[in-house]
Design a binder for these strands. Structure first.
Lengths: 247, 247
DNA sequence: ATGTTTATATATGTATTACATAAATAATTA
DNA sequence: TAATTATTTATGTAATACATATATAAACAT
């Protein structure tokens, strides 16, 4: 489980990604994980051609993908350098996905959860105000999916992610919709960090149903409040896990 | 004024962008503006090579940039198709910049402002709670910049943008910091839509100073509230402008 | 000895040609 | 008529050559 689940959720799991994409992922993962440090010059095109046994065209394509995500900076005569993290396109789906495989970082997950706390309660409110019947049905389907549990931890997390995605979509704002990656990344990293079976939080599923009910009842105020509560509970459990980790 | 100011703010204004970037911008602008419609097949590589008088390598690089932003979908044997807007990487800086030059769209600016309303008040609160002295100084400098007005509308807008950016940075969350583009895009489009001199809103500048003061006083509650008020006022003025537009 | 200019090495940028491969369409055959 | 097989179209990859920006080293003049 991990990055692969992320790509599943994004339906971006092509059977055989093109060669430049494969190389870009390989390099991207290493950069995000910190294996290749910021400011470092990576191998030149000739060496990479050798290492990955592909033509220069493929290498250059791969590098260009990472330049687009702000991970690399290419300058002729000099080479290709890893950009400082502050300049990465953090909202990018691949960058978010690669973080799932990176070494656990408490500060990072805190930032993700803060962002969720900023957006999702508002999204719930807007969903209550303007969700279409289809969007409502999608949210409820996700709740049902969580309730069934479906046997595996992985499937439970996917159902959880689908719930939050459905709420974002119901809010009918393209920028919110485009934020689903933050949720996937946060959920997947949380599970790894706490190292707990999320299904054991007995209250969690009913919390989700309550949010759905508030949205279905078009009670924006309540939907916002409950979503905030739901997220703060998740954050609390994360902090508890950190505390245990230390000891 | 327009897209160029956006790039100024992002400090991305290279004197001479590489040829692939030039071609990508040309195509990107047209797609975002809707000149090239969704689902359309764009010209094939040979034709584009002809039109722009560059090699196939350059065309392919340009196309690949737009693929990275979700604007194009390339499939061999078929050609290159404009993806539906729902799949664009709306958070991308270039995509946001190109929207500034696109035909005015009320629904779009509403979405941008809703997003600002979701995260900026929270950002102000966090800024009040954790801003460093340097970050505080940056915010105040921006307020002073607005107060001086500096003669031109353009410079005033830039000062305004710098204020909101400084607040985001002060909140010390990398994902917030990476959202500055939304603010630039929203400000630039707003000015075009209302077609008013923003300096004429006499209350606006003092509102900004009030927000700064709350942050400096570490009063998160107040900072959040004032920012919400400031944004709602901006939204109200936008709606008034729309009303006048109709008549 | 120091500062400036000039050559050279290095690495990416662009152009060109050739061929591979996926997808759609047309032609052929059972 | 349906299934199969060419053929066409357009992108994917490879290889080579040369252009150009940058840094480093060498030569030179003061």
């Amino acid at each position: 489980m991990s990055e692969l689940v992320y790509y599943d959720l994004k339906r971006a799991a092509t059977m055989t990604p093109s060669m430049p994409i494969q190389v870009a992922r390989e390099l991207g993962r290493r950069i995000v994980a910190g294996t290749i440090e910021e400011g470092t010059l990576i191998d030149d095109e000739a060496s990479l051609t050798e290492r990955y046994q592909v033509s220069r065209v493929v290498i250059r394509d791969a590098v260009k993908i990472l330049v687009g995500k702000g991970l690399l900076d290419v300058r002729r005569g000099i080479g290709t350098r890893v950009k400082p993290r502050s300049q990465w396109v953090l909202w990018d789906d691949d960058v978010l996905a690669w973080h799932v495989n990176a070494p656990p970082n408490q500060d990072y997950i805190n930032q993700l959860m803060d962002i969720r706390l900023a957006f999702e309660p508002k999204a719930s409110r807007w969903a209550a105000e303007r969700a279409t019947p289809e969007a409502l049905a999608e949210i409820e389907a996700a709740v049902v999916g969580m309730e069934l549990e479906q046997g595996s931890v992985e499937k439970f997390i996917i159902a959880d992610a689908l719930f939050h995605r459905a709420v974002l979509r119901a809010a009918r704002n393209d920028y919110l919709t485009a934020m689903e990656g933050v949720i996937y990344s946060a959920l997947l990293i949380s599970v790894q960090l706490t190292n707990q079976d999320p299904r054991k939080n007995s209250s969690s599923v009913s919390f989700h149903r309550d949010v759905y009910q508030a949205i279905a009842d078009k009670d924006g105020e309540l939907a916002e409040k409950l979503t905030k509560k739901l997220l703060k509970d998740a954050i609390r459990r994360l902090h508890e896990a950190f505390a245990n980790r230390e000891s």
